[in-house]
């Protein structure tokens, strides 16, 4: 009986130690690799590295650059959350099937658009990092693109997701990309319907795919 009691205690302590270690080990593993500002800097540096890669220069390599940039965007942006926010209250009224379709199509369109924006916008920019604010799993990284005496403020909104920071919105000069989507989508839904919006997005998605295929062939 005494032996039995000792075993039980040891077992409990062992379990506790294992639990604590496991918990600690789990917790240590789940901490984000970098800060929000670090992530943003990584993303921007990578994008500019692609843009300035001597092997990818010229109009003929635009497609290749676009593919590389799109990979960075896919990895670091939460397109699903952006899709949901872009239609705000309507999200609740949409069937799960349509939500899925909408999110997929939105992701495609956003990634393509943002790729084009980056391709056109960022090359050899001087970017000032003006600091970050972290609050309850959300963060804002403030940056400025500087050119001679003028600057454009670009704020990145991030959230912690599965132990890593992902970008869920970019606010350029006070204008949110998600907000921009939101106002246009709302108008379209108000004027026509959600289905109309989705159809138009699908048509646009097809057009982009066709263009990509053409570029690929070229």
């Amino acid at each position: 009986m005494k032996m039995g009691k000792k075993f039980n205690l040891l077992a409990i302590v062992t379990l506790l130690v294992v639990f604590v270690f496991c918990t600690l080990a789990y917790g240590t593993k789940r901490l984000p690799d970098t800060t929000p500002q670090g992530l943003v800097k990584q993303v921007l540096d990578r994008v500019m590295e692609i843009q300035n890669d001597p092997n990818l220069q010229g109009h003929n390599n635009r497609y290749k650059r676009a593919l590389e940039i799109k990979k960075v965007i896919v990895q670091n942006f939460d397109s699903y959350a952006m899709a949901r926010k872009s239609i705000g209250g309507y999200w609740r009224n949409v069937s799960p099937g349509k939500r899925k379709t909408f999110s997929r199509v939105f992701a495609d369109l956003f990634q393509d658009s943002y790729t084009r924006l980056v391709l056109n916008f960022l090359k050899k920019e001087q970017i000032d990092y003006l600091g970050e604010e972290i609050n309850n799993g959300h963060a804002i990284v403030k940056t400025a693109i500087v050119r001679s005496n003028d600057r454009i403020m670009v704020d990145y909104y991030l959230k912690l997701q599965k132990n890593r920071w992902v970008i869920e919105d970019v606010v350029i000069d006070g204008v949110s990309i998600v907000g921009n989507y939101s106002s246009i989508f709302k108008r379209e839904i108000a004027r026509n319907s959600f289905d109309s919006l989705l159809n138009k997005m699908i048509i646009q998605q097809k057009a982009i795919k066709m263009k990509l295929t053409e570029n690929k062939k070229a």
Binding site: F110, L117, Y181, E188, L197
Partner: peptide, 18 residues
Amino acid sequence: NREMTSKMLGHFFTDFLE
């Protein structure tokens, strides 16, 4: 400025609807 930026962003993101 905000309106201008919206126009610029709109060109990249939502022009297909406009």
